[in-house]
Write a protein that binds this DNA or RNA. Structure first.
Lengths: 337, 337
DNA sequence: TTGTAGGCGTTATCAC
DNA sequence: GTGATAACGCCTACAA
């Protein structure tokens, strides 16, 4: 793979390489005609500035690193798309890495990206645990970083988060108002801050509505459809069934629905179901799944804009953006009675 | 963001920069003790070789570019994961770009990646149309490229493809054997080679089973769930209903199922449904969706391995790998009668 | 307005 | 074994 360089053009036109370089960097004085000539022959020769060399000499890469827990997940996929859209208009390139929900791989990815000299990072952490120390150290060393989603609200760094507690509260409250009396919350992992916040919202709704303690429960389930199926099977077997499930996410909710239907429970008449992080599938299952929609696109956009600000104003003082959602009320939670 | 360089270490230890460099590149002679000393102090000082500089001097980036039509699609997400897994073990980094199903953006992405001096490209084209000329020109210029999925079998380049015709045939044949008499194939766009191949398989099955012409039809529908819904609404309205749908993909199939259920058709008793490109959701809808599973992971792995071969053996002669699928027989296509 | 030369952080080819 | 030194392709004072 041969690349035409600035030298080739200089030789071809009998000018110095600096002149050629200047032709491509508007900020310098150069006679318009020479400029034109250089650009034309460059075009003809198929020249394109080598970004590697440019990066090295400018000490700036115009690369932004993005690290997410997984690709196979509409939430992160949409966030990535939004980030790319914003950054591309500013001539940044986006390097995306996923870590398969492993905090170790996540750390490796971040290190790889930093060593590749990205100008900044957007990190959607898998956990808000130990890696944070390393990340915060990088911020101290003036590496612009913006966190998205699974971050503690108290964290002293720029971040884009969702008000999980509030929307968990609303979702739970909705179920109660629909007349469901015994509601179980299938939560993700307890070391996940977003899960904790949702549990808080759930419990707050229970308390505010004076639901007696024996009529609700939080069960650590996970984030996969099959985990939703297993727990439901289990509850049926143990004859410990609620009349509504508030699930950690839509896949879990769909697992629950699947098992309920297999056991001839009617949704929403016998049992209500509520998801979280509205997915495209929510409208396609029968009955349609009620879920909390998060503004993924806006969150990704905000993260990118926050990062751009940090990079261009060289001001790393932390900014937090908290986003609100929307309760997508659909059939699985609306009782006729 | 300050980076420690080879120079800092050289000064610190009173050795030359070449010695330091050698300590990090096993292939050169260097006294073990100096090596140890250098590595230790490098570690201490937080040094890490600057890959940009290395790339510039080696004229090799250890970056691989991947371009896909979209992220929000399990098929491509899984392919990307597989590609990453293979390449990471060989110390390559994977830069992924998506083009939102736009051939123009796809071309831009490829150019960006080539100009970023990737060592090779894996392209999952949106269309097999005009961009191909540009891509083939790059291959002539010794840029290693492997194509995945939406490529013509005849294309004279390295590629990983799925035997769409064969598996479309099997899927259709299955519907016929289940006693469905009037089958409509909801196809993607006609300028998509994979769609064309699936149509061919569908028609071949019809012919081999001597289904009369008035009992089958190919309808260009698209790839989205809502397109599946619309077409079904339309057919119901026009009273032109088949007794089985063979859909371009699972989302379309789920759109069809949704509309059918809303109109009280029983699946599979009244109407059978078959998807394609098995998704995780297929098992979660009711009834479970029958679909053709493609070996996405293996396809991604094969693409990465093909590319590695090309790069390391410096041999760009085209290799084609054709993959087979599996018919995931589930409830939407199995008649009790 | 243009050319010269040094630097960005490495690797690699020489001498010593 | 180790140390100069010239690349790699580009940018950018400074000089002309």
């Amino acid at each position: 793979m041969k690349h035409v360089t600035i030298k080739h053009i200089a030789k071809e036109l009998n000018v110095s390489i600096s002149t050629v370089s200047r032709a491509f960097n508007d900020k310098y004085d150069i006679r318009p005609e020479t400029r034109e000539l250089i650009l034309r022959t460059a075009e003809k020769m198929g020249y394109y500035p080598n970004p590697i060399a440019k990066k090295l000499s400018q000490q700036k890469t115009f690369n932004i690193g993005v690290v997410v827990p997984e690709f196979i997940n509409e939430f992160y996929a949409e966030i990535i798309v939004a980030i790319q859209e914003v950054l591309i208009t500013q001539n940044y390139q986006v390097l995306v890495m996923q870590c398969d929900n492993s905090a170790d791989i996540e750390l490796k990815n971040v290190k790889t990206l930093i060593h590749s000299m990205v100008d900044g990072l957007i990190i959607a952490p898998t956990l808000d645990g130990g890696n944070m120390n390393y990340y915060l150290k990088q911020i101290e060393n003036e590496c612009p970083i913006v966190f998205v989603n699974r971050v503690k609200e108290q964290l002293n760094a720029s971040k884009v988060i969702f008000d999980n507690k509030k929307w968990s509260y609303f979702a739970t409250d909705h179920l109660i108002r629909q007349g469901y009396k015994k509601i179980y919350h299938l939560s993700a992992y307890k070391d996940l801050s977003v899960a904790k916040e949702r549990v808080e919202g759930f419990l707050k709704a229970m308390k505010n509505n004076q639901v007696p303690e024996e009529n609700y429960k939080v069960i650590e389930t996970g984030l996969l459809a099959k985990e939703g199926m297993h727990i439901t099977e289990d509850l049926i077997y143990r004859q410990d069934m609620p009349d509504a499930f508030f699930c950690a996410n839509d896949p879990v909710a769909m697992g629950v629905m699947k098992t309920l239907k297999d056991h001839n429970y009617r949704i929403p008449e016998d049992i209500g179901v509520m998801g979280f992080t509205n997915t495209q599938m929510a409208e396609l299952v029968t009955p349609q799944l009620c879920s909390v929609k998060q503004p993924t696109y806006d969150m990704g956009k905000a993260a990118a804009e926050l990062l751009l600000d940090q990079i261009e104003k060289e001001d790393l003082s932390p900014v937090t953006k908290v986003f609100n959602g929307k309760l997508m009320i659909r059939n699985t939670s609306v009782r006729n009675a």
